[in-house]
Simulated assay, not measured.
Amino acid sequence: MATKLSLTNPLLTPEQWSQPPSRIAKVPAPLETQIRHFACELIEAAGILLSLPQVAMATAQVLLQRFYYVASITQFSVRDTMMACLFLASKLEECPRKVKDIINVFDYVVKRRRNLLITPLEMFSQAFYEMKNGLIIAELQLLKQLGFNVQVQLPYGLLVTYLQCLGLVHHPQIPQLAWNYLNDALRTCVYVCYQPPTIASAAIFLAARQCQCKLPTQPPWWTVFDANLDDMIYISGHILSLYETPLPTNIPLTCEELESYLENVQAPLSNSPSDQV
């Protein structure tokens, strides 16, 4: 039987939603949410410094979210995985970057985010070797754990089309605001829970509410785009939750840091919602 190529994104199963591997490994849901959020922020920062197109950064963020629904952050270093995701995404989007450049940039953005002294990473140092080895192994694990299914369909093109259909392309605020919401949603589980049409519709829904712009309801405008109101509300809630509490600077990025954090941290985790839907 011939295999059909699907142009839709693979979505989480109900079991993966409710019980990701990190939860089985006793990592608190708020901490895992913060780690995912932080890693995606670092991917975006590194991508900008590497002059990568937005599609590559977005693809890398989605791959990281997918990976940690089939693998635990206690077994696979987040630092290595986020480097591997950006390295792989740059190849998938035909804008490859050198391994040494990716390592140096991630070393820089992590130190800057943690307010550490920024010193050049020596190419033949032990630290460089460990990061290079970690990146290469993480890329192999990424492909293995995802079953080489690394295609990512993004909703940006659909967003522009939907805005045109609704006559909102020239609105002074909604297009940019909706675009920003799509970018921010990459730091949540949204892209592994819903297909692009629903995500694009949710971004418009949230932007229109923010701007107090009334859209057609007879029939509801989102039904034309195969979206569901409840799904859009869920997505909007996840996006808005990003703005509630700033991320701490001591979020662990390696398995060793995570183990130490879980053993020694005394301060309560923030009350940010879990990425379960």
Rank of each mutant, 00 (worst) to 15 (best):
T3N: 14
S6M: 14
N9V: 08
S22C: 12
V27F: 10
P28L: 13
L31V: 14
E32Y: 11
A46W: 02
I48D: 02
A56R: 01
M57Q: 06
M57W: 00
A58S: 06
T59I: 01
V62Q: 06
R66N: 04
Y69K: 03
V70Y: 05
Q75V: 05
F76V: 08
F76D: 02
L92I: 14
E93R: 11
E94H: 12
E94W: 13
R97Q: 12
V99W: 02
D101F: 05
I102C: 05
R114F: 05
L117R: 08
Q126H: 07
E130H: 07
G134Q: 01
G134L: 01
L135T: 04
I136Q: 00
F148D: 02
N149Q: 15
Q153T: 14
P155A: 06
Y156P: 10
G157M: 12
L158M: 15
L159E: 10
V169A: 13
P172M: 07
Q173E: 08
P175W: 08
Y181H: 09
D184M: 12
C193Q: 14
Y194W: 14
Q195A: 04
P196K: 02
A200E: 03
L206G: 00
C213S: 02
T217W: 08
W221I: 10
T223M: 10
D230N: 13
I233A: 12
Y234I: 15
Y234G: 07
I239S: 00
I239M: 02
L240R: 00
Y243F: 14
P246V: 04
P248R: 05
P252D: 05
L253G: 02
E256C: 11
Y261I: 04
E263C: 06
P268C: 08
L269K: 00
N271E: 15
S272E: 15
